[in-house]
Write a protein that binds this DNA or RNA. Structure first.
Lengths: 207, 207
DNA sequence: TATTACATGTAAGGGGTTACATGATTTA
DNA sequence: TAAATCATGTAACCCCTTACATGTAATA
């Protein structure tokens, strides 16, 4: 039930479901994702539970906004969650699963292509977060050691992204090096076999 | 629909649902988790889809086993998945979300305790995987550069775990250092304020 | 005039968890 | 004899996604 608590956390300032969706997309997309169709009913449920209360507010354009704020009971629930042990979920890594079974394709060049694509995606994310940290460092004279407590905690989460993404890219590079070394060795083995006339090179397979 | 494809991948050898559960728990727990109550209906659905076929087989103890094997259509579906781009899902990191909001507790000592617990859990996992690699290196003379292709791909996934977990522990250590530096600075600030008689030290708060 | 942004929702369905039901065989 | 392991499944429920429904106001 992490979404419940994340909404409580975000509602330190009053906000509508629409506002919260924007916060998910702009500020915590590297931590948690949520769709509007999930946010709206969840807010309603949290209000029934008395962790939130809401009021109607006018909007400049579009229908009336429903603005939520946290109750004392909600804040207690939030604190209980924050004081509970680190909530590490089970691993579910689809791209790693693809790699695990990729010998099935019997073609190392495909594994190499997989890693090149993966590296592209991850290093794009890494660059985005590096830029973010860079701008923050330039714009905020308190960065990084004299930040207010809320910003300090956010900085720690940002640093997690940097550490993880760097490690991910390094793993891609290490893997690509191993793959290339293997490919070279295969070619050399093919060469030896072809010279001896044991096997035709085009029937050579990785499996 | 990753579970479908993971089951196809595991069924390179024929196996029962019960067997597959054991493989999930013993060999790919760091990649994907699945419960028996999910595995059984999924296998049935994949058989209806003609990606698997099954036969009944006797068991030494307990009821008859239903042993599944992959069909040609199943293998084609598996290959399509393996050749598709790296399937990177959206982030959903509950422990990072806890940290993001933890300034709410207004007590850096609690953030420090959080990181100590997190570090314990992650470094235990890291040690487990390091031991795994160590035993493999000792037992298998082909390790790491002359492994058969299937083992080579599995090694790459194992290396991912090592890179990720090391980065995670390093981030914990970096964060703990930052937290301790902040705590020291707060103490010093308290001392200055107390000497000047501005505020009583027990009412000093992080927020 | 068409698109985008604002704003709130419902419906259907897939993915996953926990709990329950059943029963045989081996081991402590 | 009790517990663990083998073995297959169903039911209820939660979490989340995609698609649909509705309508206003500003902008291109």
């Amino acid at each position: 039930m992490s979404l419940d608590h994340i909404l409580l956390g975000l509602l330190r300032q009053p906000a509508s479901g629409y506002d919260l969706k924007a916060i998910f997309d702009q500020h915590i997309h590297y931590i948690w994702a949520a769709e509007l169709s999930q946010i709206y009913p969840t807010l309603q449920r949290l209000e029934e539970k008395k962790w939130l209360r809401s009021r109607s507010a006018d909007s400049k354009r579009g229908p009336a906004r429903r603005v939520y704020e946290i109750t004392a009971a909600g804040r207690r629930a939030l604190h209980t969650w924050l004081e509970s042990p680190p909530d590490i979920g089970v691993e579910r890594n689809a791209s790693l699963a693809q790699l695990y079974f990729m010998s099935e394709l019997a073609d190392l060049a495909k594994t190499e292509r997989f890693f090149l694509r993966l590296r592209d995606q991850i290093s794009a994310r890494l660059q985005a977060i590096e830029r973010l940290e860079h701008y923050w460092a330039e714009a905020d004279p308190c960065f990084p050691d004299r930040l207010p407590s809320a910003d300090f905690h956010i900085l720690l989460t940002l640093r997690k992204g940097l550490h993880s993404l760097k490690a991910h890219v390094q793993w891609c590079d290490e893997s690509l090096a191993r793959i290339r070394a293997r490919t070279e060795r295969e070619k050399a083995a093919d060469g030896r076999r072809t010279r001896k006339g044991i096997e035709k090179p085009e029937s050579r397979s990785e499996k």
